[in-house]
């Protein structure tokens, strides 16, 4: 069963320099209990897509132009703001990249955790406190009953991210959206946080959307992957297929352009020439064609559609 279904979502920004097509006809779904990886570079729309249907983008300049988004059968785009707000932080939770800016520096961890519970449920303050401490224990914070009194600046980066995760999970969400959850953390801390997310997901049976630019992170954690480029989905396949039989030239290039620990040292990395396009003036046809090594005549004229090829979905004229 699909918990989230997004169909033909378009979200544009109306700016001084013209209309920026940040999310352009994006469709995907998330099944119950599944972890979906969303991979892309900055400006690919990998975060904006999710902020858009959750109503978290300032409007203007942002505007949802068209599309359908259903969460557990409920239409998110036509929901009133109040119900959408109730859904966020309750059924759908988010973790952001920088835990320092997502926590309020003036309030103690306790206040912030309890507030999250009390805004969404009608339980007593005592129960809320108990739940908060339990939440912290769950994410592996030592001496949780003491730590809960501290303020964000008294905690290290890894601890803060754990607090953020605890906060996101307090109301037992059905869907957790993690936007670059470990990018600001050191590698040895990252490993722990990723394992934590994975364990909690299995325990609670929730679905996870993991947004990241790090191919290594998605490899170990996700079931399925979406590769985004310039506001569009270029490829969608199971994690195994993406890494072993990538189809889209962009996916292939991306995989070969990162230095990796497990391969022998080569002299040159394959690099993708050029720059991601300006989304106010995207190239005609396929948006990747100016940088594509396998470009054919058709690419700069006709925009490819996402179509099924075997077990995958690819948006490329080669298939």
């Amino acid at each position: 069963m699909n918990i989230l279904e997004v169909k033909n979502l378009k979200n544009y920004f109306h700016t001084r320099d013209g209309i920026v097509k940040a999310v352009d006809d994006v469709s995907f779904h998330v099944a119950k209990g599944e972890t979906l990886g969303v991979v892309g570079e900055s400006g690919s729309g990998k975060s904006v897509t999710h902020l858009a249907y959750l109503g978290l983008l300032p409007s203007p300049p942002s505007k949802i132009e068209s599309g359908n988004v259903h969460f557990q059968g409920k239409d998110l785009l036509h929901m009133d703001l109040e119900s959408l707000r109730k859904l966020r932080g309750n059924k759908i939770s988010m973790i952001f990249q920088d835990p320092m800016t997502s926590l309020n520096p003036f309030l103690s961890i306790k206040t912030q955790l309890m507030e999250t519970i009390l805004t969404h449920t009608n339980i007593s303050e005592q129960d809320a406190y108990k739940k908060s401490v339990e939440g912290l224990i769950q994410v592996g914070i030592p001496a949780a009953d003491k730590r809960i009194e501290s303020y964000p600046h008294e905690l290290s980066g890894g601890m803060r991210q754990r607090v953020m995760i605890a906060m996101a999970l307090l109301n037992n969400p059905e869907l957790l959206i993690a936007d670059e959850p470990t990018t600001a953390l050191d590698v040895t801390i990252q490993a722990g946080v990723l394992e934590l997310i994975d364990n909690l997901k299995k325990q609670k049976g929730m679905s996870v959307i993991l947004i990241t630019h790090d191919l290594g992170v998605v490899a170990g954690l996700t079931d399925r992957i979406i590769v985004m480029y310039a506001g569009q989905i270029k490829e969608e396949a199971s994690t195994f297929d993406i890494f072993n039989t990538p189809k889209h030239p962009y996916t292939k290039a991306l995989l070969q352009s990162v230095p990796r620990l497990d391969t022998t040292k080569g002299n040159r990395l394959l690099s993708i020439p050029g720059l991601p396009p300006d989304l106010a003036k995207p190239p005609t046809g396929c948006r990747f064609h100016p940088r594509c090594p396998e470009k054919i005549d058709k690419c700069d004229k006709e925009e490819p559609q996402l179509k099924e090829v075997g077990n995958c979905k690819v948006s490329c004229h080669l298939y």
């Binding site: 290290s156 890894g158 601890m159 050191d186 590698v187 040895t188 801390i189 990252q190 490993a191 722990g192 990723l194 394992e195 790090d214 191919l215 290594g216 992170v217 490899a219 170990g220 994690t239 195994f240 890494f243 072993n244 995989l255 990162v258 990796r260 620990l261 497990d262």
Partner: peptide, 29 residues
Amino acid sequence: EALISAIPVPDPQREKERKTKRIILKGDI
């Protein structure tokens, strides 16, 4: 050793093997 083992590798199969052997350090710096 911990530092090297903590780095995720962009390969789902190898990542599965690495995960079992991963050394996760306790605490913070």
